[in-house]
């Protein structure tokens, strides 16, 4: 199988700020890989480095096996990229852009394009500037999929779309008949979407890779404990796998990563009078990871 995306110790610093730190990731061909992370987690920097638009401070990034710093046009032709603004030449008609894109991509598949565009109501004679955000997203997706790319990177493609457009977008993305086994990198803040679409969940936080597994395995990593501590919680940095915690009605609600049932024993040994374990959903698990190092008052997550 081909490795679509490969980074090794990828690091990017802007002055004193580190946008991406020692980031090592490998994505194999196939499936939908969702990337979540709070704003500034380094997702955009990662994509920019993968596309060779930003040069890494150190480490390497490879796209379809080729060094991102010197991507050949041929490799670029096999990698689709859709950004959240759905940047398209505003002054051109939908028909003109499609014709232009078609001329660049030898593998262009018109039937895919037509099928995707069918989910949206795009008039080919309409100028892009006159399209709604949803229609523009649809046109963009139609072109990206019709290129029959090996890898398609979608950077928050449903940002700012209304419910209807968002649904059309997801349907078109997931159910358009495709020949090629396109690997999709899907970046979003919408947990609901992630839950629906993701085969693999990649969690980034502060420029570092926190998780790369199926969403179910990820959720299984996080456990939620409620304890009643007479003398307060032990120091946070001594709790194994500590993620977040809050105090509700005197009880301490703790989220920890990678802890088994014996964590209950640990809590008891450290002053908990009663201990209960609750289930967590994906959103909470992700949030716990993303807010781990953020200083929040106890009353909030």
């Amino acid at each position: 199988m081909q490795t679509c995306i490969e980074t090794h110790g990828l690091t990017k610093r802007y002055g004193k700020k580190t946008a991406l730190k020692d980031f090592t990731l490998e994505i194999q061909q196939g499936g939908i890989h969702a990337i979540v992370g709070s704003n500034g987690a380094g997702k955009s920097t990662l994509f920019r480095m993968l596309l060779g638009i930003t040069t890494p401070t150190s480490g390497s990034a490879r796209l379809l096996g080729q060094d991102s710093r010197m991507l050949a046009p041929e490799v670029r032709g096999r990698v689709g990229y859709v950004n959240e603004e759905h940047t398209l030449p505003l002054w051109m008609k939908a028909r003109q852009i499609t014709a232009q894109q078609k001329s660049f991509y030898p593998q262009w598949n018109q039937s895919i394009h037509d099928e995707v565009i069918g989910y949206f109501d795009v008039d080919p004679e309409q100028k892009v500037a006159g399209l709604s955000r949803g229609e523009r997203a649809g046109l963009n997706l139609a072109m990206a999929l019709a290129q029959a790319p090996d890898v398609l990177i979608l950077d928050e493609p449903t940002l700012g779309l209304d419910v209807v457009a968002r649904q059309s977008f997801l349907e078109a993305l997931m159910f358009t008949e495709r020949e090629a086994n396109t690997t999709i990198i899907y970046c979003s803040h919408q947990m609901e979407e992630i839950e629906r679409v993701a085969d693999q969940l990649i969690v980034m936080e502060k420029g570092m890779l926190k998780n790369n597994s199926s969403p179910d395995e990820f959720v299984a990593r996080v456990s939620y404990w409620v304890g009643d501590f007479a003398n307060g919680l032990p120091a946070k940095n001594t709790i194994p796998g500590y993620l977040t915690h809050r105090t509700i009605d005197g009880n301490h609600h703790i989220l920890v990563a990678d802890q088994g049932d014996d964590f209950g024993q640990y809590l008891k040994q450290n002053g908990a009078r009663t201990v209960a374990r609750n289930a967590v959903n994906l959103e909470r698990a992700v949030n716990a990871f993303l807010t781990k190092n953020h200083n929040t008052p106890d009353s909030r997550v």
Binding site: G31, L170, E171, M174, F175, V197, A198
Partner: peptide
């Protein structure tokens, strides 16, 4: 698989 995925609007792999 595809039919149910479309009905539920989820990834067919799921």
């Amino acid at each position: 698989v595809r039919g149910l995925a479309m009905q539920l609007m989820i990834n067919a792999n799921t």
